[in-house]
Design a protein around this nucleic acid. Structure first.
Length: 802
RNA sequence: GCCGAUGUGGCGGAAUUGGCAGACGCACUAGACUCAAAAUCUAGCGGGAAACCAUGUGGGUUCGAGUCCCACCAUCGGUACCA
């Protein structure tokens, strides 16, 4: 048969479309199973072969599970708000909406050409008013529950472009567009109280089945640390607090360091006697970009805060206070107790500023560097120079000191988290408008829910204003409105939401995408329950996933979703690299366009190759040669059709391998071992090819197993062989007993080295095995002294000789 | 620096979780078919003449280690002074 992949693939894509083969019906009696791939950002560049990898993987799972009788929800949509579309629009002088529509059309066409079994009836874009209405509505719920607030926070600001930059655009402390140095600028922004959920987000991980490395990513990002918050008196009145995880070193305090950007120094200012020097240092710090500030090996800059001394609460010792930019204003209390003998940063600061050091834990010299907690904890180290606590182990002292200070009412056990509140404002046009109105008289007021959606106005200019306000600020008749509270003149918020907003709940919308009464009905969400299997890139396993979980937990707490966690399994795929093992990029000229491959080799070949190319969770380089090998495999499957003979059922010779292959493919597709699933299918095809003829049932089975990965050609060959369509066929079952070989060849070792093999029956008597083994290696045992014999049933026989 | 992942033929990668290392595929070599090529088929394909040696390096545990333990090295990601 001539393999015209274009014609065959189109034919079956049309068939699936017409028959609505992949439509997910909410509420039907089958067991639900929700498979999700991250919806893409529809860029002008089109689909990447990396998309093809993950979409095919999930498609194969979806197709197999559908055949196994599950009601599969495998949806697709578009995450289309955000900076790239806006940039593209500015550059090409078209409306971002038009640019996005064009890209979506292109993406969708490409996806259809690849034969993914998405339920297209559920498609939507985050930029649809029908969708972002609910994103805005949910923001209002955050606001009404006290979870959204305005605060002044530093943002990355490019003085040349006069633009606020995201952290990504400001990577390395320079503006991505013009290369100028980014500075920090204070700006009033909407914030979501995500830090309130630190503990819940940590605990919630127990109710998920995320891959370990994904969980770990979440845990690290939340960054919990347990310690003590300690009150410190100031000589002459007043006090401040410090956070420490090493209270056992409290007798080693020789100074305190406070953050130059924190609130504390502002409070202390009136009593400072070297105001000029202190102010200068504060200004210097503010000028530094966040990158400069956090760069290591910069030396520990800072200055003494003169005129104020602090008192060590345990021994009344008076110690100086310093400013230092290694202390962060927004972590802990913005102040630390400095114990240079036992903290490397404190040590460096003390050396720089020639300050006293007191060693309080015995076990190592502290002349050259600090003796830190990772080196002294759980090593049975004892305290020195610590009055009543001297002689206790570190672990004992930690508890005893904490207890004493807590009882005295000057310390509290606390947890601190690295995770901050979510900065939710963007000074951009192409995002969901934040539905808030500012009235001189009534302050910030939420829009009335019935007035949603607040549409983005249709305008011609998307450039940000001179002072970095959102482009929306220029549109006077959109900005000016009336106060929902008093009816007087008021102004709209002109910032928009971040890209992360729309993607934080889209998986809920897929459960009920056309609902115009609610973002999704409780019934629909209860039916689909949760995302059973969520696949995405490693780059999203920290932030996107955390935002989405936060969003869901909030909705759960106000009774709007059925579960606290709505995503069960999260897996992440490796990237498809160029043939030179580098990331694909235009500048490197190693980009493979999936359209070209589909054209020349067919979608099935591309799908098969991407599943075969290697460990799914690891990066893999592109190889067109290997791709051709996959095309050859399909050719072989086509040729096998000519071997169909008269018989029925499975022949004796193939029965065992058939059952093994069913088992293998089935397991591999559910454990992301796609490459070995393909190889086992190749082995099956090879053993069919070795025979003079095969039965039509054997051929049908091969096609069925291959169908999830290469759906078009298998449907075609299946139809030609006289069977009903595979997408309407049940997945085959295997008989465990037939996957076990009745005969085995096991290795015989002498001193751990293989010397021979013997053929044994399954579970053969040990004495009989021994007999065979001895006759096989008789000559090698002559004159040797047998020390030991190990027989692992059905596996190996090892003889130890001297 | 810290956290994580990875390291196996010329290449992509397998290895039932401690039991014949290199499945499957690519590339390559030889042969068959062909006027010739492509396609296909057949055979070979880690090193070594062999004993043997080989899973980043060096130790260890074990009858037996790619797999477990210890100490390193290299590459790639993430993160950035978090008290």
């Amino acid at each position: 048969m001539e393999y015209n992949h274009k014609q065959i693939e189109k034919k079956w894509q049309n068939y699936w479309d017409e028959k609505q083969s992949f439509k997910a019906e909410t509420g039907n009696e089958k067991e639900s199973y929700y498979i999700l791939v991250e919806f893409p950002y529809p860029s002008a560049a089109g689909l990447h072969v990396g998309h093809v990898r993950s979409y095919t993987a999930q498609d194969a799972l979806a197709r197999m599970k559908r055949m196994q009788g599950y009601n599969i929800l495998y949806p697709m949509g578009w995450d289309a708000f955000g900076a790239p579309a806006e940039q593209y629009a500015i550059k090409n002088h078209i409306h971002p909406k038009a640019a996005v529509q064009e890209s979506i059309r292109n993406f969708k066409g490409q996806m259809k050409d690849l034969g993914f079994s998405f339920d297209w009836s559920r498609e939507f874009s985050t930029t649809d008013p029908e969708y972002y209405k609910w994103t805005q509505w949910q923001f209002l719920q955050f606001y009404k529950h006290g979870m959204a607030y305005k605060d002044t926070v530093p943002v990355n600001w490019c003085p040349t472009c006069k633009s606020v930059l995201s952290n990504e655009d400001a990577a390395g402390g320079v503006c991505e567009r013009c290369g100028d140095t980014v500075v920090q600028k204070e700006k009033s922004q909407w914030m979501l109280r995500m830090s309130d959920y630190s503990e819940d987000l940590l605990k919630g991980l127990d109710d998920t089945n995320f891959a370990d490395r994904v969980k770990l990513g979440q845990i690290n990002w939340i960054g919990k640390s347990t310690g003590v918050e300690l009150d410190v008196e100031i000589v002459g009145g007043g006090k401040f607090s410090v956070f420490t995880t090493c209270i056992e070193t409290i007798y080693g305090i020789t100074f305190f360091v406070i953050a130059p950007d924190g609130k504390l120094i502002k409070e202390l200012m009136p009593r400072v006697t070297n105001k000029e020097e202190v102010n200068k240092y504060i200004q210097e710090t503010a000028k530094k970009s966040s990158m400069d500030r956090t760069e290591l090996n910069k030396g520990k800059t800072g200055c003494r805060v003169e005129g104020i001394m602090a008192i060590n609460p345990v021994n009344g010792k008076e110690v100086p206070i310093f400013l230092g930019d290694f202390v962060l204003g927004d972590y802990g209390t913005g102040a630390v107790m400095a114990v240079p003998s036992h903290d490397q940063r404190d040590f460096e600061y003390a050396e720089e500023h020639k300050l006293e050091m007191i060693q309080v834990i015995d076990g190592r010299d502290t002349d050259k560097q600090a003796f830190e907690k990772q080196d002294y904890l759980n090593k049975d180290c004892k305290l020195i120079n610590s009055e009543e606590f001297t002689g206790l182990t570190v672990e004992e002292a930690k508890e005893a000191i904490t207890e004493k200070l807590v009882n005295e009412g000057i310390a509290r056990k606390v947890n601190n988290y690295k995770m901050r509140d979510w900065v939710f404002s963007r000074q951009r046009f192409w995002g969901e408008p934040i539905p808030m109105i500012y009235c001189e008289k009534c302050g910030w007021q939420p829009m009335k829910e019935e007035d949603l959606p607040l549409l983005l106005p249709d305008v011609a200019e998307y450039e940000p204003t001179e002072d970095g306000e959102s482009p929306l600020a220029n549109i006077t008749d959109w900005v000016n409105t009336t106060c929902p509270c008093c009816g007087g003149a008021a102004k709209r918020e002109t910032d928009t939401m971040p890209n992360w907003a729309g993607s934080s709940w889209y998986f809920l919308r897929f459960m009920d995408p056309h609902n115009d009464k609610e973002f999704a009905s409780m019934d629909a969400m209860k039916y689909w329950k949760k995302v059973d299997w969520y696949n995405g890139g490693m780059e999203h396993t920290a932030r996107h996933l955390l935002y989405a979980r936060f969003w869901v937990q909030f909705l759960y707490n106000i009774g709007l979703v059925p579960n606290k966690e709505m995503i069960w399994t999260r897996v992440s795929h490796g990237m498809v690299l160029g043939n030179n093992n580098e990331k694909m990029s235009k500048s490197k000229g190693n980009v493979i366009n999936p359209d070209d491959i589909v054209n020349e080799y067919g979608a099935d070949t591309l799908r098969l190759y991407e599943m075969f190319m290697g460990d799914y969770t690891q990066d893999a380089p592109w190889s067109t040669d290997s791709l051709r090998g996959c095309r050859r495999f399909i050719d072989k499957v086509i040729r096998l059709k000519d071997k169909i003979g008269a018989g029925e059922g499975y022949s004796k010779e193939l029965e065992s391998i058939i059952h093994k292959t069913i088992k293998k493919v089935q397991n591999d597709l559910t454990t992301m071992a796609y490459n070995t699933a393909v190889s086992s299918l190749m082995i099956l095809a090879n053993s069919m090819d070795d025979k003079k003829s095969i039965t039509k049932d054997e051929y049908h089975l091969l096609l069925t197993l291959l169908n999830p990965i290469a759906p078009h050609i298998t449907e075609e060959l299946n139809e030609m062989s006289g069977f009903k369509p595979l997408c309407e066929t049940a997945w085959p079952t295997y008989d465990e007993s037939k996957t076990i070989d009745s005969e085995k060849e096991i290795p015989v070792q002498i001193n751990g080295k293989v010397k021979a093999t013997v053929k044994i029956a399954l579970d053969e008597e040990e004495s009989s095995v021994k007999e065979k083994v001895y006759s096989a290696v008789e000559n090698l045992l002559e004159g040797k002294n047998i020390v030991k014999e190990i027989y692992v049933k059905n596996k190996i026989y090892n003889i130890v000789v001297k």
